[in-house]
């Protein structure tokens, strides 16, 4: 075989790069990833982009329909709600609350879950079996019910909801890290570095994490879609973000009373939630397919 490479070393892309290579093959996933980046952009720069403040009242234009309606006004592109707040600005600010916070929530629970999971993969015997059963029990309780109980302990409010969702998401990360680490530990390359005299922490850091990080990322994107739905649901039930906050679920709950005269106050936040969850799911699905394709190649 002809070699174009004049250097002797062969370059192997890291597992993460290989994942990226397989990931960008599918056009649908690319669109999903584009939407995901767009949402990230909105979440970070929300206060710069949005035309009005999310809590500013325009009392002369209450319940204005979106601009494409006959009664609409183009200066309020998506209409206004019952207090004359611009829907577009509220939706953009909502991105940083619902979408951006779900990102942070997943990140925190990922870190905690991975630490506990990899430590528990190193223990054996009764302790590990107890943890396993305990996790099974926790995972069998519905996530929303668990979140509601934690909110009941901490009291309602956005911060407490976020901690509740972090705690709800942790068990699944522990579970997946534990299984992935245990699986890698049985492989020969780990044995090789163990024979070189590496201790468990070193093996975890240098040999195992680079190989399981893709699994964790794929789980994290799927967890994010669940986190968005949970934040929005708790907001809708009035247990999460308080009503004046432009959190999508709370916005929707605020619009219910006006559903029949101003349906856009309910349609638009719902569509925003749907859009972001679909984007997160598409990225997660693409990641899963890329993982599978990489395993098979």
């Amino acid at each position: 075989m002809a070699r174009n490479n004049i250097y002797q070393e062969e370059e192997f892309p890291s597992p993460l790069m290989q994942l990226w290579f397989h990931f960008r093959q599918s056009p649908v996933v690319k669109i999903g990833f584009g939407c995901f980046l767009f949402l990230c952009f909105l979440a970070i720069f929300s206060s710069l982009i949005s035309p009005y403040s999310p809590v500013e009242n325009h009392l002369d234009s209450l319940l204005l329909p979106p601009a494409w309606d006959d009664n609409g006004d183009v200066s309020y592109l998506l209409g206004t709600d019952n207090l004359g707040r611009d829907m577009l600005s509220r939706l953009i600010h909502g991105t940083s609350l619902t979408f951006g916070l779900s990102f942070i929530v997943v990140l925190i629970s990922l870190v905690i879950g991975v630490v506990i999971g990899s430590l528990s993969a190193l223990t054996k015997g009764v302790k590990s079996s107890f943890l396993n059963h305990f996790l099974d029990v926790i995972l069998s309780i519905p996530s929303l019910l668990l979140a509601i109980v934690i909110v009941a302990i901490l009291g309602p409010g956005l911060n407490n909801t976020l901690w509740a969702i972090v705690m709800v998401l942790i068990p699944q990360f522990i579970h997946i890290t534990r299984n992935a680490v245990a699986e890698e530990f049985n492989k020969d390359y780990v044995l090789a570095s163990r024979l070189d005299g590496a201790n468990s922490i070193r093996i975890l850091h240098y040999s195992i994490f680079p190989n399981i990080i893709e699994k964790l990322i794929s789980q994290a994107t799927l967890a994010q879609s669940a986190a968005i739905l949970d934040i929005a649901t708790l907001g809708f039930l009035g247990l999460g973000a308080p009503i004046p906050m432009p959190e999508w679920g709370a916005m929707l709950a605020n619009g219910i009373d006006l559903f029949y005269i101003a349906p856009w106050t309910v349609y638009l936040p719902g569509l925003a939630i749907l859009f972001s969850v679909v984007a997160a799911n598409l990225v997660g699905e693409g990641m899963r397919h890329a993982l599978k394709a990489r395993k098979e190649s």
Binding site: S225, A232, T233, L252, V266, P269, L274, V277, N281
Partner: peptide, 8 residues
């Protein structure tokens, strides 16, 4: 179907 928020 599984992305749609149930309350909506």
């Amino acid at each position: 179907g599984y992305s749609i928020p149930i309350f909506w």
